[in-house]
Simulated assay, not measured.
Amino acid sequence: MRERLFAAAERVLAREGAAGLTNRAVTEEAGLAKGLLYSHFADLDDFVAQLVLDRFEAIAAEVAGLPERAGSGEVRENLTGAALALLGTNGPAVAAAALSRSAVAERVRQAWEGGAPGPGAVEEAMARYVEAEQRLGRMAAEVDGAMLALAITGTVHHLRMHGSALPDDNPELVRRLVAALVTVP
């Protein structure tokens, strides 16, 4: 039921933006009774916070295996894939919903401080991946893996929070970013 509500919320966000995200809009989109959302969440802020945390947990799980992929595939493509996972399909819309509600932003911040997977988990996986590729000689030893990971995740976070003028261009922007930052021998 949670996933059904989350998927409905993402569709509402994509179509109507953060202002259109209401209990009624989500439950109607999901084809459920109006009060059902409150059977699973304390209030709309709790729902949106849980949506954000759920999506980041899925992203972190997807990217967690990146260091084990060292030595296979193309370095730039591996990093681009991780960055695109962080951006997500509805990343900017979900981020906008979180930012539009101060209580949500605070709940998410507290959860991340408490150890819930967030952008830091993706950054850490990227840094470990770069270190593993360096050990294999597929990246120069002088590359600062932590700073490279920060630059990529920070830029993707910016795109996630603000989008670009042409959101469909975000994947190409990420590819260009990684190509500009990552040199391979």
Rank of each mutant, 00 (worst) to 15 (best):
A83T: 01
A49W: 08
E68C: 00
G65P: 15
A95K: 01
L53F: 10
A105E: 13
R76T: 01
M126E: 10
A70S: 15
R160C: 09
P167K: 11
E16I: 02
E68A: 15
R135M: 06
V143I: 15
L32S: 09
T22W: 09
G88R: 09
G17V: 10
L84C: 04
T153Y: 07
R69Y: 06
T22I: 09
V48L: 07
R138Y: 04
L173T: 04
G81Q: 12
V63Q: 05
T80D: 08
A111Y: 06
A105I: 01
N23W: 11
M139I: 11
E106F: 01
P117T: 05
Y129A: 12
D54Q: 12
M126W: 01
H40T: 02
V48I: 15
D168M: 14
P67T: 02
A30E: 11
A165L: 08
L86F: 12
V94F: 04
T153I: 08
A25N: 07
E113V: 07
V52W: 08
V182Y: 08
L13C: 10
R128Q: 14
N170M: 14
A8Y: 02
E113W: 07
V12W: 02
E10R: 15
E10Y: 00
A7G: 13
R175I: 00
L66Y: 01
P171H: 14
A19R: 15
T80F: 04
A125G: 10
R24N: 03
W112Q: 10
A96I: 04
R24H: 03
S164V: 00
A98L: 05
V108A: 05
A98M: 14
A58I: 00
E28P: 00
V48W: 06
A18E: 10
E28H: 08
S39K: 15
A111R: 02
R11D: 11
R4D: 06
L177M: 13
L84R: 10
L181F: 15
E74N: 14
F6A: 03
G114L: 12
V52L: 04
R160P: 04
T183G: 06
R175M: 05
A105K: 13
